[in-house]
Design a protein around this nucleic acid. Sequence first.
RNA 1: GACUUUGUAGCUCAGUAGGGUAGAGCAGCAGACUAGUAAUCUGUAGGUCGGCGGUUCAAUUCCGUCCUAAGUCUCCA
Length: 645
Amino acid sequence: MPNITLPDGSNRSFVDPVSVAEIAQSIGPGLAKAALAGRVDGELVDTSYRVADDAEVAIVTDRDADGVEVLRHSCAHLMAQAVQRLYPKAQVTIGPVIENGFFYDFAYERPFTPEDLEAIEKTMEEIVKEDLNVERSVLARQDAIAMFKDMGEDYKVEIIKGIPGEEDLSFYRQGEFIDLCRGPHVPSTGKFKAFKLTAVAGAYWRGDSSNEMLQRVYGTAWPSRKDLKLYLQMLEEAEKRDHRKLGKQLGLFHFQEEAPGMAFWHPKGWTLYRSIQDYMKRVLDRNDYQEIHTPQLVDYSLWEKSGHAAKFAEEMFSVESDNRMYAIKPMNCPCHIQVYNQGLKSYRDLPLRFAEFGSCHRYEPSGSMHGLMRVRSFVQDDGHIFCTEEQIQSEVAEFMELLFAVYRDFGFDEVILRLSTRPEKRVGSDALWDDAEQALKDALIATGLPWELVPGEGAFYGPKIEYSLKDCMGRIQQCGTIQVDFFLPERLGAHYVAEDSSRKTPVMLHRAILGSFERFIGVLIEHYGGAMPSWLAPQQAVILNITDKQSQYCRKLEESLKNKGFRASADLRNEKIGFKIREHTLQKIPYLLVVGDKEVEAGTVAVRTRGGEDLGTMTFDDFCNHLSQDVARFGRSDDSLATTN
RNA sequence: GACUUUGUAGCUCAGUAGGGUAGAGCAGCAGACUAGUAAUCUGUAGGUCGGCGGUUCAAUUCCGUCCUAAGUCUCCA
């Protein structure tokens, strides 16, 4: 006689074991129709699940994040069914839920085409109309293997053989289609309201490139057509904001065959780059970092000593000269330790913070390069803090505060925190790891913000926190990091004299706020859609004359703006004002100053923004004040002061 | 690195199912127009069709190979 407690705290008693669907029905027919799954004592189950004992039960619908996941997972099954109807020879493999959608990998004799996708989508619609029941069943392993062998589904057989344990396996059947699956799934194929197949691509069986290539079909599914439309619009918007496209359109940088993965920065792009570097330099100066600069080429033996050669030899560029092997530095840490090692350090010197805008080169696999986001030549806003174990936590906490402030200046308010802990292959004692992980954890807890634990993802030399920011499209971009390192200082012979005159090895904290300037600029371009806030805009204002008569006055304004430290120019070309406005608006210059006879006479400028807003006519001084304030605000969404002000 | 796709003028893109001097728009250049808030008009120059090799009487077009780029997988100190 189960007594069911619902999320609102109310109770319902049933005489016999009762299914989730029946509970939903007892609450109301609307809910019964909307029910996609249930949650029984916290566990997600099918609506057909029977509750026999007292339990807390919630009905899961598509208003629930879990409900949408179930919907997407089931949609992957729907797609697999459609594929096998159309292409009976296609074998199914795996079909999980991913962010915003799902995919399913098929083994098929040829790649699917966009036309195939359309046909699959159509068949999916038909199966939705058929409203087939989705039924769960349980099979013993041997029976399951026999069944899939019989069906010619070799991959499924392999999957089952790979599942540890001895317990029976669950299956889901809808019409003629049956799939091995943990579930849960929607009760019937009539529940799908909005889905779309978005892409097809090759993917390797079990992610290993020595295995057969499968056909992966990506799809997205949403509770409503409206949600789907919004999502597709977001994808379109993301494409428009692609930094590679905008980089070309705005004349910021380019890539060419002769230097794959290495950007050629153009005047405007480099101005942006320098603005960010100058800003970061001010930030570091104010936070007791000492800037250093270390060589590009370092004898290969140093990388052998540091252990990088053993692990990353293939990803390092090397140069031979005079019978000596050098590596182009792939990272700055070993060099920073060389600087640290000059002269005997005392515990009184710690923490010692070195910073370098370190230019690094890594031979990234050709297929992994992506615009500015993944390059072979990049500059890190790198820094290394040498400190004692006791100082780790306070250093990390201080760093985090700085990082948040910097991100806010760039217009990012939401930061995602992840703690990666000890991996299987690692150096150092467990006690040491315990302390370091605890220090990072404490620093995270002290922020009062939510954070995620990623077990086993730390570097081999120590745990780390990674900082990702959410851009305006909701995409998560990993930028900053702080990593505890017990290993490298010892390996490269760093030490300090402790209070008791003994020699001790310092802990090294690797840290970066932006990550790399290249990547961060890529993120910024996409976040702002190329319309950089005034403090970063390569050009902040342009002065436009209406006829030649105003040229003299415009030149004077240009000079005056430049003298005040603004980035401005005058466009005196013999073109119509509408033409010039269009051009500079497309170049996303924040302020367009129009000057005709009226303005010359009154000593004013007519101000228009790149957004098309008319700020009216104002005196030149008023405009300068306006621009100054705009610049001082940085990218902050509120009016609080920027970090370096 | 793997698979698929791709590379034509400064940019965006047509075109050539193996045949004569490869096209358009924009940008550029020359000239006219002296204008009031997202494209003024006229004229004009510009390409060994990604590189190398092969097949062919003939290759931008077909084949091979290399390089770049895109998507995806893998990787990311």
